[in-house]
Design a protein around this nucleic acid. Structure first.
Lengths: 201, 201, 201, 201
DNA sequence: GATGAATGAGGTTTCATTCAT
DNA sequence: GATGAATGAAACCTCATTCAT
């Protein structure tokens, strides 16, 4: 069936793009792994670039949706921040390929940032909203909302990525259930309360 | 003088690599901007890869040295963390090209992480040392040292990068002196004290 | 009705072939403009080549038929030559797309000349017959019949083509009724009497 | 030597383009026949298109120069027209590959006509000048100058092309010295005096 | 030390054609 | 009769690297 083909292409593409990066990824390899002819990819996507953009949009939309779903489950801003941390760590950990691409291909290139501007906005603004609500409520410190949200996003992403690079695929699955809560707890403490034990004033 | 040639090549290479990324960067373009023939680059560097590695090592060494120098100027761990924040923000802001490469080419690729493992260790361990000292002293919270250091590194890098992408080259110089302190102050508060205004217990 | 489909395909094909030339013409585009699926074209024509040949044969047959019809209306060889001139100019002018293909795809390629040999013969021999009749009657100069016929054919075709390229589609319709007689009159004088005003002897 | 390489590429390109037409001509084949690597062609010419344009400009410039040289040898407009006929027939006959390309690729395509507009103008205007001089002198009939020049150009080109297609390469060389004068004489009579033996009035 | 013409493997993309529905 | 998703051969072009000067 038609939709099946696209699924296969998507599946193969995430892997190959993540393994090799956008430039080094070869359409041949994507086709081979998807079990379709090279031409078939071009029947569905105009170019390598378009395939990549479709893929990343898909991944970012799903991450956004997942974050919003998790967010809806709690009311208190502090708890919401916790949910976001846990959700983002979990999603990036489970979609390691996507995480790599997000950092290396989207975050580090101005052209790509332009292409994905809207989706990045969506993602960052979820964190922003929580920060704003916390501030209004009086439980959060007053900070530059956007800068802070981006920094939090960066802290989580880079931390997860580093973690992913430390273990090989198989090993990762084994330790996953103990590593994720650890990671989340650590980031949560850092972001909630900071490094300094007791505030001076 | 011969060393002059290498300087020119280095200067051109950082720009081109940062503008286009490693893969898309063309040796032709580097040669053109350096004002030398393509063969000359190959006389000094065995390959594109080697040129890139030399370049990044250089940049990371300089960042490391700069951080250490700044660190030596204060004693208190909390102030040291402040110095690191300011130093890293400033260096990445001033070397925007290098910052981009650090995120997109080094941080996001496992092969590159392997190549630069030692330098990354150096960089991250500076933050780690400060955290350990703060903990021992009792003024810092007890956290997973490495994970925290990486998260802080990520928070700073992504925040600066985002900032860099918001302004064009020229404009950047104009607002630099007011933006950097703003950025640093915000990151400092976040990392020192976290988002939550008052600790519950 | 089925024949309707073929009409649509033919109509789209002339346009696309003429706009892009045989090689650059894409079956996709022909199908799109004909309002049918690509497979439908292949249901009716074995290949792109076959579609093209069918198309050109059709056009050449119609030109031949038209020339013969016009020729039958007058008796005198000189008048017949005039009729041919007028008829060929008119037909090529009205079927600009066909005219282009005749020059670029049929006339300029030996393989195509082989394929259309018979039709080209038909076309050229109409002119040849008139020349022969004129010679026999004594009113025409004695010349190499075939070479002369081909030269006349070329003069008319290239002149009309040049004219067609000078005006855009719409504009062409507006000036058509004044340009065609002008063109014909000029060619007629040239071919009937030559450039030289008074023969020496 | 460098210039040698370009000569080889040019030589191979005319042949391949003429044999197969622009679209079907393969760069691989041109490279093979030129005895260079494919990349070498791209080192000297940015694209297939650019190679083709360079080639045709070269050919048209040489034809123009040759026509002007021949023209300068006689004074009388009627003799000049004869020279042009002889020169053009001879050049196209000797450069059959170029002749084919002129008709099929340049003359029959509006895009190409645009690209070569200036060179085509040069070529046609040589004939125009002779016609104008003849008119002024009173020895030539008054006709639309441009249209007439184009028609003459077309008559000659198509006639030569047809002749070229009738003989294979080798055979052509053998009959060349008797065929060219025949062709020229016939065209000369046609264009000088027209088909009609005696003017009626 | 420095040059730049030449290389050729390798990549993306195109598109006529097929075939199961 | 008609469809359109799928194919894969083939073409253009890129560019890191080499080497004779």
């Amino acid at each position: 069936m038609g939709s099946d083909t696209i699924e296969h292409i998507f599946g193969a593409a995430v892997c190959v793009f993540a393994e090799s990066g956008f430039e080094r990824a070869r359409m041949d390899e994507i086709a081979r792994r998807a079990g379709v002819a090279k031409g078939t990819i071009y029947y569905h996507f105009k170019s390598k670039e378009e395939l990549f953009v479709a893929l990343m949009n898909n991944g970012m939309e799903r991450l956004t949706a997942y974050l919003r779903r998790r967010l809806a489950q709690v009311e208190d801003p502090q708890e919401q921040l916790g949910e976001i941390l846990d959700a983002q760590v979990r999603y990036l950990y489970d979609n390691g390929t996507f995480a790599k691409l997000l950092i290396s291909e989207v975050w580090g290139s101005i052209e790509r940032q332009r292409v994905f501007r809207a989706r990045i906005r969506d993602l960052v603004s979820i964190i922003e909203e929580v920060i704003r609500r916390g501030e209004k409520e009086g439980s959060f410190r007053t900070l530059k909302v956007q800068e802070t949200a981006v920094a939090i996003f960066g802290a989580i992403s880079v931390a997860v990525l580093q973690e992913l690079f430390r273990f090989e695929e198989q090993e990762r699955q084994d330790v996953k259930e103990e590593r994720i809560p650890d990671l989340v707890r650590n980031l949560e403490t850092l972001i909630h309360h900071g490094l300094i034990y007791k505030e001076a004033e």
